[in-house]
């Protein structure tokens, strides 16, 4: 079963995401962490996360408490054991600066948070289809 790590500090956005995944009949696990520091602990299996499964994709908000999304992205993509995990930046920002910065730091893709629920469902459906059914990164999940 696929595992998604959602790094998101907005409780409302997390609930909407859960609902959308339920509507899409997503059978995997959605793990949620609320700030960048905890996201890195989760990915590095530190603190309370020693028994968690390595996520198949990370959905990363940019505006996060403690350690922001860009710093999380930079740390993941600089880490030999983590850099093959697809990180999809999920942001309300459509500024060229943010998009370019995310791709330059190694984001696998950049997604703008849709304002409408049906658009979110459509976007997530495309994310699940492309990244969980076609992308091959899950085949390297054993490397560390």
């Amino acid at each position: 079963m696929p595992d998604i790590l959602l790094v998101e500090d907005s409780v409302v956005d997390v609930e909407i995401m859960r609902e959308a995944l339920t509507d899409l009949d997503f059978k995997g696990n959605l793990h949620v962490v609320e700030d960048g520091e905890v996201a890195l602990q989760f990915l590095r299996k530190e603190e309370n996360f020693q028994s968690v499964t390595r996520p198949d994709i990370v959905l990363l908000d940019l505006n996060l408490p403690k350690v922001n999304g860009q710093e999380v992205l930079q740390s993941v993509k600089a880490d030999f054991g983590l850099k093959t995990i697809p990180v999809l930046v999920l942001s309300t920002s459509c500024s060229h600066f943010d998009v370019k910065a995310a791709y330059s730091l190694g984001a696998n893709s950049y997604l703008q948070k849709p304002s409408r629920y049906n658009e979110l469902v459509l976007m997530l459906n495309r994310v699940l289809t492309f990244w969980l059914k076609h992308d091959l990164s899950r085949k390297v999940s054993g490397l560390s």
């Binding site: 998009v99 370019k100 791709y103 997604l111 703008q112 495309r126 289809t129």
Partner: peptide
């Protein structure tokens, strides 16, 4: 669908 329909490209 993903790259031309959802992803933000620059």
């Amino acid at each position: 669908d993903f790259w031309f329909g959802s992803a933000t490209r620059l």
